[in-house]
Amino acid sequence: MLDVIKLVKVNKSFGGLHVLKDVDLEVAEGEKLVIIGPSGSGKSTTVRCMNFLEEPTSGEVYINGELLTHKNKTQIVRSSIAMVFQQFNLYPHKTVLENLTLAPIKLQKVPKAEAEERAFKYLDIVGLREKANSYPTTLSGGQQQRVAIARALCSRAKIILFDEPTSALDPETVQEVLDVMIRLASEKNITMVIVTHEMGFARQVADRVIFMDDGRIIEQGPPEHFFTNPTEERTKAFLSKILR
């Protein structure tokens, strides 16, 4: 099967700080990949290299077999990759509906009526049709993140990156966002790369779990094996801290 994302010897430094060290990674079409690890381990940077929000200091990133460069990143990201952020990053000067239709109308030249129809379809999926004309700041964190997921879906991108989507949420709203993501994970043709600290969720949706520490991939495997029989000491230490 085609690897929709492929990282080859990716390194990333911020000033003198070397955050990614020779990361090699392939993600198959339709795969649900979960990346875990302590903070500062490079998991967010890894995901942000996949859509060139961070451009690697060295190494290569391939999307659907095509080498991602500074020149073609906008075009490739536009058609193939969507992202959901920790802080939602909805556009506060636009209504929920406008947040969902802006990119399709401006970038994919979808007619307005069609873009809105599409937006309502995804708002139904995340259960927020009645908020279409609200402004993001009037919504709860969980609602905002569900809108952000709907916005990602509106692009019709087949790859969706999630960078700690529930870390900024109040505890009582975490589950509503996870529920939406779990439903999304049942879509066979959507590739999901998820950075998260929600281990129960990871176990439930992941096809593969990756553990990162100190800028490297330490261990990876299917969730049942990963959570019950980790082989690396660092993985064991991390899991014992986080799974209590």
Partner: peptide, 20 residues
């Protein structure tokens, strides 16, 4: 985050500035 959201959707620099 506003810049990042725009870039992650594939807006160019000029579109990001003028639209967002």
């Amino acid at each position: 985050g506003q810049f990042e959201a725009a870039y992650s959707q594939g807006f160019t620099y000029l579109q990001t500035m003028t639209l967002i």
